[in-house]
């Protein structure tokens, strides 16, 4: 709409939107600020905003209590591995559904999505037993497989919607040009759907990173990712706001940075390809 908007109106919009934005963002901002305070300053009344003695002692304390890098590494392996594996398995499936649709395609898609509605807690113990049997309990491999499976429906769904935007004629052209199925997917489909694939990967990486049911219940020490790292702070021992904040900041910082930098791609992905 190429229409002049009065500056007053724009100013009012700006003020309201920024206020709400900051309000929504405030808990995170406050956590980050608090992580740099001393424990005493963290609970100061009235609360201190910027004028306090900035310190890194909480980060040191958290690192001393639990080895952050190990949890971080587990998170990266688990989220990255499950997403990557999921995409590798989902791309062919989404290709089939998008380009060789049959009468059952829609049913299969909806069925896949409905497996996502299966309450995890309903199958917790069986999975637990299976994991013990297979020696997967508290291993990264086990979690990679489980998170891959719970995110698979979403990955297939998203890729399917992105693939459907690509004209079949182009794939047919590549077939005429002598491309095998592998070539067709690798050289034509994948590059064309790259933005969609990137959104899918990003979103599912974040979902896997933040997944807290299976990661809390299927790990103990070895394979525990950051969700478990932070859960160990749920039982308070004395003054601990600053340390909790430091630990929280450490747990969310990587994904926050990733999210901010890939915001455009992500917003596209967030809509699960269902809204244009």
């Amino acid at each position: 709409m190429a229409r002049a908007v009065t500056n007053t109106r724009k100013t009012v919009n700006t003020v309201i939107a920024w206020s709400i934005g900051l309000l929504i963002f405030f808990p995170i901002l406050w956590t980050i600020l608090t992580s740099f305070k001393t424990e005493a300053q963290a609970i100061n009344d009235p609360p201190l905003f910027l004028f306090f003695d900035w310190t890194l002692e909480n980060y040191a304390a958290v690192q001393e209590r639990s080895n952050y890098m190990r949890f971080l590494w587990n998170s990266i392996i688990i989220a990255g591995g499950s997403t990557l594996l999921g995409v590798i398995i989902a791309v062919p499936a989404a290709w089939s559904m998008a380009f060789v649709p049959s009468k059952r395609t829609k049913d299969i898609l909806l069925w896949m999505l409905s497996t996502k509605m299966l309450p995890a807690v309903g199958v917790l113990y069986p999975i637990y037993l299976i994991f013990i049997q297979l020696g997967l309990l508290d291993t990264r491999v086990g979690l990679v497989v489980v998170l891959m499976l719970i995110n698979m429906p979403i990955i297939v769904w998203m890729l399917y919607t992105y693939f459907r935007e690509i004209p079949v004629e182009i794939l047919e052209a590549s077939r005429m040009d002598g491309a095998s199925l592998r070539d067709e997917i690798l050289y034509v489909l994948a590059p064309m759907a790259l933005p969609g694939i990137a959104s899918t990967v990003l979103l599912n990486f974040i979902l896997a990173w933040n997944e807290a049911f299976w990661t809390l219940n299927l790990t103990a020490a070895k394979a525990a990712p950051l969700t478990a790292f932070i859960a160990s702070y749920s039982s308070p021992e004395g003054l601990f706001f600053a340390k909790l904040s430091a630990a929280s900041t450490m747990a969310i910082a990587p994904i926050l940075l990733l999210g901010w930098f890939s915001q455009k791609q992500l917003v596209r992905g967030l809509t699960f390809g269902a809204v244009k």
Binding site: F25, A212, T227, I252, I255, G259, Q263
Partner: peptide, 13 residues
């Protein structure tokens, strides 16, 4: 960006 951020925060945090 401000509005989207809570989505990135893991539920335990």
């Amino acid at each position: 960006i401000l509005v989207i951020t809570p989505f990135f925060v893991m539920p335990t945090v």
